[in-house]
């Protein structure tokens, strides 16, 4: 199993989007579901020989997920965000929390 974690933690909380690359088949449903163009489909550079394509968090959003993902309100108890529910394989997990102390 390979997990790719994108995001950061700072004084205000933790903001991570995690992808289980073994479950992701690169279908792109999450990319289409995201209202803020945070996600993209890229070649799987972690398994370059036979990895195919996978989802990735766009470079320019990795340092500001708190703001990029704000429309979905995952940090204020808005339920599962569109990207997570769109994925047919349950490959995406969010660890977005404005409270300190949540354990990944």
């Amino acid at each position: 199993m390979m997990k790719a974690n994108y995001g950061y933690a700072d004084g205000s909380g933790q903001y991570y989007i995690t992808l289980d690359t073994d479950k992701c088949d690169g279908c792109g449903d999450c990319v289409r579901a995201c209202p803020a163009s945070v996600l993209e489909i890229v070649p799987n550079e972690f398994d370059i020989i036979d990895g195919g394509d996978i989802m990735s968090v766009r470079e320019e959003h990795r340092k500001k997920l708190k703001y990029s993902c704000a429309p979905c309100k995952p940090t204020t108890g808005g339920g599962e965000p569109p990207c997570v529910t769109a994925c047919p394989h349950g490959a995406i997990t969010h660890f977005l929390s404005s409270a300190k102390g949540q354990v990944m």
Partner: peptide, 11 residues
């Protein structure tokens, strides 16, 4: 040497 999990800190 295959990646299983990673975290970046690029803040």
């Amino acid at each position: 040497g295959k990646v299983q999990n990673f975290l970046m800190n690029d803040k």
